[in-house]
Amino acid sequence: MSSVSNTDPRTKIFIVICISFLAVSISAARYLFIVLIGSFLVLLFFRVNIVHFAKKTKILLSMVVFIALMQSIFTSFGEPIIQIYGWILMTTGGVFMAIQFILRMMIIIISSGLLSTCSSREIIQGLVQWKLPYEVAFMASMGISFLPKFSEELRDAMIAVQLRGVDLKELKLKQKIMVYVSLLQPVVAGAVLKSKAISMSIEMRGFHTYQNRTSYLILRLKGKDYGIMLIVGALTVIIMIQYLYSISSFLFF
């Protein structure tokens, strides 16, 4: 087994937390772009099958682009870029928001790919050993698995649409938007219903019946894990300080 593949799941969770924190806190596109490159490098370092991961999340990413496009249309601040009969369709502010949203979501989706190298059992155990209550750890692990479930739902819906003889590539933009909008609600509802069914079946198997829980899996952090966490933590702090400095110099000078 290679040295990176047996990295402790807590190290990977820590990296995802750091990257997600940067994605949520930063609003400058150039910094978000740097974090995005960093996320890619992390996936490469941990030998995540990028091609397989890209295939799995392709539809999800196209949905993100679609939402960003909608967001850019309905954002009114900034200079107008496209106007039809006096009605402002797109502004510089809208485009900026859309780019920011796409970068942010891509960072979160890509960094979550790192967790695909751990089993849900390892993630739960990692969180429990961080003294998180078992229920909360379990909830977090279910939350992480929601993304692939959502992606799966979306893929099924796209196949079902095509099986009804509808080719999205052949539709006009207005029709395309209508199809995507009509898919959104049932796809989200489908993923929620699936998660609900899972939680019910877990309860049926006696989840939370006993106060204490035995675990055969005990995780141990090694020197390599501490090293990776230290480097990632330091990089996060440096990027954040640099970003805050760039904002403050923009505000005060």
Binding site: I159, V161, Q162, L163, R164, G165, V166, D167, E170
Partner: peptide, 8 residues
């Protein structure tokens, strides 16, 4: 043939 044409 695209899937949509098969679906038709």
């Amino acid at each position: 043939i695209p899937l949509s044409h098969i679906g038709q």
